[in-house]
Design a protein around this nucleic acid. Sequence first.
DNA 1: CGGTATCGATACTGCTAGTAGCGTAATATT
DNA 2: AATATTACGCTACTAGCAGTATCGATACCG
Lengths: 186, 186
Amino acid sequence: MARTTTAAGAPGRPRSSVDAAVFAATRTTMDELGYARATVDRIAAAAGIAKTTIYRRWPSKGALITAFLVDAFDAPPLEDADPKDGLGPLVRWVAAKIAEPGVGTAFAGVFTDAVNDPALREILSTRLQEPHVLTLQEILGESRQRVLFVVDVVVGTLLHRMGMTGEPMADDDVAALAAMIQRVLD
Amino acid sequence: MARTTTAAGAPGRPRSSVDAAVFAATRTTMDELGYARATVDRIAAAAGIAKTTIYRRWPSKGALITAFLVDAFDAPPLEDADPKDGLGPLVRWVAAKIAEPGVGTAFAGVFTDAVNDPALREILSTRLQEPHVLTLQEILGESRQRVLFVVDVVVGTLLHRMGMTGEPMADDDVAALAAMIQRVLD
DNA sequence: CGGTATCGATACTGCTAGTAGCGTAATATT
DNA sequence: AATATTACGCTACTAGCAGTATCGATACCG
């Protein structure tokens, strides 16, 4: 069993540090079985833990997948960006992430679930989208409305292509998408 | 019970003409309960028919919703279009349709289901998307790749906004979307 | 050692998509 | 008018999944 990561001073048995293993299991299970067949039972089994442990940490399947996505979309390439390149590298980075095994499947699936689940929508919006939106507002110096529009276009387009074809978007279409978005901001 | 619409000459009891009632029930049920809670049982009850009758006509819930969407997106405003206006009116028409009660909910829901269901993806692609793509290819004189890209951007963006906020896109953002797409084609 | 909180395991509820079977109703043909 | 054929409503059913409850065992803190 993995060792604890719980803050010192807390009474009781600390939580085992299996978050990384759960995310890895989510990734492979999503990739191999798809969103619908990637049940919480199967993800737990792939991670070598009990299903109840997952529900102790995340309140729903959607929350688990959102946490997986937050982890997957951590550390966007913002520091070493050349301002002259504009949004191109960022769009390509998002497209590459969505093309990773399991990520696009999980993203499209949880997004769909969120459409009719306000609680999940809140989690998805707060934990996954909002931090990136705030960062983009600062970096681009654009209005919140403009940033939200850009996010909708980039993410929506990539997910729609993935959903309709089952395949991630090809590089030249990603380039076209990046160029189109760049023109919006100029 | 509604009268038949079956082609003459066919033996046996003709199908009652309840398709329109089923679509109307789908619309209101989707609008009032959302995609997940709009079960086939409830849609059938709202239409005043048995659930089994629905499954005699459409092989799955996804196929039913797709048929509803095909009906909802019939007759795009192409005839009386001024070529000078470009894609603007068409984008606004799609946005208005998605903003209709039940339509956006059904669209986002069936699209999500399709991500991990190849059979449904085939139905959705063939019956709903392909006819419009072919029409656009003819009218715009653009390559198939270009048209598919435009469809992904327009539909993906509108559905993503709907999914994240629960509300259809506001008019000025729709106008921005139309303008952006227009520049891609110029 | 005692207190506390997590873990694995098992069993369970509630809901939904989709199927099966049957008696009945509607139409075309003869 | 009788018959063949197909659809209809109804009821019951299966299979699968999200999420919950319970409990003995375990790990850490003081």
